[in-house]
Design a protein around this nucleic acid. Structure first.
Lengths: 194, 194
DNA sequence: TAATCGGGATGATATAGATCAAGTGAAAGG
DNA sequence: CCTTTCACTTGATCTATATCATCCCGATTA
């Protein structure tokens, strides 16, 4: 399980990890399995773990006063999941994280991550690279949410993350796009027809 | 002008800058004044500068095929402005940045910033702090854009950035929220009536 | 003193997308 | 194996917001 993370880090930082650093990193993470529908984070609690998704699919979502769920983000293989604000600031989260499919995770506490960042140059580098990519991706997502029609949003998603529509429940993808499931269903049909 | 940046850095990193580092930082930035409606970045060109807004107001926006402008982000005093993806990757930008009011800026090139980050611990720390804050802020903005009604979006903006509605043209704020100027105008009236 | 212009307000109307409701098929769970 | 649930589709209707068209006002500019 850890080998996947190791490969991932070497790829993202474009450098081989010295054996010493591999051990350091390995010892900082814990394996965790989550069954479908199990929670990694409950609203109102502090997000104790940052988790690396080795296998499976997760989502981070909020629930409004009317009880509607709003999917803010998905996590598939090779993605990180946590409510970063809660994780970093140790404040109670307004979000939930649960497993959409059975998951294999590698989790790390805030404390361990902080220590690791100081001890491992590769982890420092990884953080920078990920923050940068996240910045680019969210800017595009914001732009699409303020400028695009529903159909454009779906087409854009099909280009950016084609896996989402193939793999994840459509009602969750609809929520992620800020649409209703009915609208997403109709628009897909419409797109298909071309 | 530079003193503002210095204070800002000391505040954000919660530590006093040694004089040597102050000089290093000062020498990395250039002063630039921009008159209202002048551009810092034109779509199709590479974003050469990251700029710190000492005074004034700017916006980063895209233009769609129909010629509509979409404001992705504003920059007021104490904010940074650039198309980070273009700035970092040296790729042509799809965005424009121009001045909404006359601006005083401190600008830095990618090369100088990279050098500075290596030479100045404070700048390294600043980058981390800013990335983190940006992460928190964009997650909330995405959540609001997928979950809120128009009225909720306006109320949320009034809580988060009350300056925007007082200081910036309403049509630009509407665009930032993904609404039409007419809708924003009506909703404000409606909110006022309570 | 106009004449112009850009931002904002407001009314009338149109429409994209939401909501409500029903039916279907597949899969989860006892 | 049944049966209960859930995701998805489709149709009918509703409504929030967009669009279109004027009008207004204050700030430039001629």
């Amino acid at each position: 399980m850890f080998d996947i993370l190791r490969q991932y880090i070497e790829q993202m930082t474009a450098s081989a990890l010295p054996e010493e650093e591999v051990q350091l990193i390995r010892n900082s993470f814990t394996e965790k399995k989550l069954r479908r529908k199990q929670f990694l984070l409950h609203e109102g609690t502090v997000c104790k773990y940052m988790s690396f998704v080795v296998k499976g699919a997760m989502r981070l979502y909020s629930i409004d006063e009317k009880g509607n769920e709003h999917v803010v983000r998905f996590g598939l293989e090779g993605w990180w999941m946590s409510d970063r604000e809660s994780f970093t600031m140790l404040t109670p989260s307004r979000y939930n994280i649960d497993a959409i499919e059975d998951c294999d995770l590698l989790i790390i506490t805030n404390e361990a991550l902080t220590r690791l960042r100081h001890a491992s140059p590769a982890m420092t580098c990884l953080s920078l690279v990920l923050d940068e990519r996240h910045y680019f991706a969210t800017q595009k997502r914001i732009e699409s949410s303020i400028s695009y029609t529903a159909e454009e949003k779906v087409l854009h998603l099909m280009n950016t993350y084609p896996q989402f529509l193939q793999r994840l429940p459509q009602n969750m993808v609809a929520s992620y796009l800020g649409l209703t499931p009915e609208t997403l269903s109709r628009i897909r049909k419409q797109i298909q027809a071309k």
